[in-house]
Amino acid sequence: MTKILVLAEHDNNSLSGATLSVTKAAEMLGDEIDLICTTSNISNLEAEISTLTSVKKVHVFEDKIFENEIAENTVDCLIAVSDDYDYFLASSSTSGKNIMPRFAGLMDIQQISEVIEVVDGSTFKKPIYAGACIATVKTEQSRNVLTIRTTSFDKTSTDGGSAEFVKHDLPANNTNKPTFVKNELTVSDRPELTSADIVVSGGRGMQNSDNFKLLEGIATKLNAAIGASRAAVDSGFAPNDYQVGQTGKSVAPNLYVAVGISGAIQHLAGMKDSKTIVAINKDEEAPIFKVADYGLVADLFEALPELESKL
């Protein structure tokens, strides 16, 4: 029987939507799906995890060392419960990318990253070259580690399940690891970028961080998340976690509005699967218009206030 272990991603308060998409991908591999959850407080997460209909068992490692994510700590726990499983899945978030290859290395498994389609149990599709090509790859390994691009999968049913929660002691180990110093997390009342229905992104064309705020009124009216190009982040208009693209986040909202963004392939890599794309750019030759369903050739400093007032 094929057994699949999914890494539960969360912030110790609530489960990440990514885990729902990864569980959906797991369902395409088999129906023995278990979760592993390393957390400082399982009681915060238990109710939410219990809603996942397809999950059979949850391996719980609860300790204050999981207040902040140190890949080494999570991987020690993954190894401890790894014996029975054929597949190990996490999302291709920064967390999944940090943890899973480390685990795969210790298991002597070649990982397959950024899976966008499960063709069958050993065949997967994944983007390569910043999404310029899609590769179909086949694994000859009997056990596999996959990271899942969550925008390519629906969310699993959360109508209620009957998962059994199994608590484990922390595994003994002598792993060398870094220590946590601090974090600066972006707080925002807006929807989360990777799961928002609408994303409004600004690029270098916004010119400075004050102008970047022109996007806020529109985002508020549309209940949208705000994103940015690399150039906008590098120039300090927006924080790093706003970056959409090859090295930032992958998004696929119903509506993506690109303002003052030229449409470099590395940016397109993160947003071209959006359902409807709008581009506002004063350069009618800008490559972003090639992927835009609706292109408005205009000066953004005129178009944005008008757009805000007409929404």
Partner: peptide, 25 residues
């Protein structure tokens, strides 16, 4: 242990339309 069977271009997006102004958008 992982081999490439096929490499394809991603599905092309159909090129959209240019709109004249914010109202049309």
């Amino acid at each position: 242990t992982v081999t490439t069977l096929k490499v394809e271009s991603p599905p092309e997006r159909e090129e959209g339309v240019k709109v004249e102004n914010v109202d049309v958008l």
